[in-house]
């Protein structure tokens, strides 16, 4: 708990981390407090005010069904952020475990695990996610499962690569020579030295996942109406990109800004957790 407090304090002193956290906080809070923030309903259609340009009562305009775009985006944040977070968590859990075991055990265990990773990486991800989502009945839960279960392989590989290098380091070798148990070496000597990579990669993965989910929804395979993620809203804007330009533009900007926030935070985390890499 205290560690967290200090980390947060340090992050707050870093300008780009502060910006990142503020962005994330604003998006997250508005997602959570959505009904309090907007007088409009996200799904109630009113064709009489369809496709109105940004105005005072509808700051970002209305969509093709007369729904307030800002309201749609705020509610969309719930879906987009939620999917990004949950799927990443799942991927980190699987990936770290596999990478640690594979890198440390070596031999046939490593061989089999990496073969599995090969097979899964052999599936071009969006391609397969598309297949999986396209052939099932898409729901938020299924999308999270599919995204998480198909995103852990890089983490596993990166962790394994780190472990192989760390395993050869003197302090680990001497720990082995001292007869310290494998479990202890893995968890206390090796894992702490991989957390930097994991944290940084995981943070970036949240952003990537939000984007992948948006791509699915954009292709019409993700979150189904009347629910909407940001990708769904961008897709809707495709119908009339010139006259109703604001729909896709603002929905896209919502993604870009959020992901920028996440990446800013991730980068600062990296330089804080691994000061040598960012000494200058």
């Amino acid at each position: 708990m205290k560690d967290w407090y200090y980390l947060l304090k340090k992050l707050w002193r870093d300008k780009s981390a502060r910006i990142g956290m503020l962005i994330i906080a604003v998006v997250a809070v508005s997602a959570l407090a959505a009904p309090l923030l907007t007088p409009y309903e996200p799904n109630t259609q009113d064709l009489s005010i369809a496709a109105q340009a940004p105005s005072f009562s509808h700051p970002l305009g209305t969509d093709l069904y007369g729904r307030d775009l800002l309201t749609r985006l705020i509610y969309g944040a719930r879906v987009s952020l939620g999917i990004g977070l949950c799927a990443t968590l799942l991927a980190v859990l699987i990936g770290t475990t596999v990478g640690l075991i594979s890198g440390y055990a070596g031999g046939w265990v490593d061989n089999i695990l990496m073969r599995i990773v090969d097979v899964l990486l052999g599936f071009p991800r969006l391609f397969v996610i598309l297949l999986a989502v396209g052939l099932s009945t898409p729901s938020v839960k299924i999308i999270i499962l599919i995204l998480g279960a198909l995103s852990w392989m890089e983490i596993a590989r990166i962790v394994r690569g780190e472990v192989i290098v760390i395993r050869e380091m003197l302090y680990v070798k001497s720990a082995v020579a001292l007869g310290i148990s494998k479990r202890k070496i893995l968890l206390e000597y090796i894992l702490p030295n991989t957390t930097d990579v994991i944290t940084v990669y995981a943070t970036l993965l949240i952003g990537t996942t939000i984007i992948v989910e948006a791509s699915l929804s954009f292709l019409g395979l993700g979150v189904q109406p009347p629910d909407a993620s940001w990708g769904t809203i961008i897709n809707q804007g495709r119908i009339d990109p010139i006259n109703a330009w604001w729909i896709s533009t603002f929905a896209g900007l919502a993604i870009v800004i959020t992901v920028i926030g996440i990446n800013l935070l991730g980068d600062s985390l990296r330089s804080l957790l691994n000061p040598r890499a960012d000494q200058n």
């Binding site: 954009f218 990708g231 961008i234 533009t249 870009v256």
Partner: peptide
Amino acid sequence: LLFFYSMPVFWLGMMALG
């Protein structure tokens, strides 16, 4: 780089196309 990194490809494509 951060800007382009944080951007969905398809959105960039749509904007460029438009």
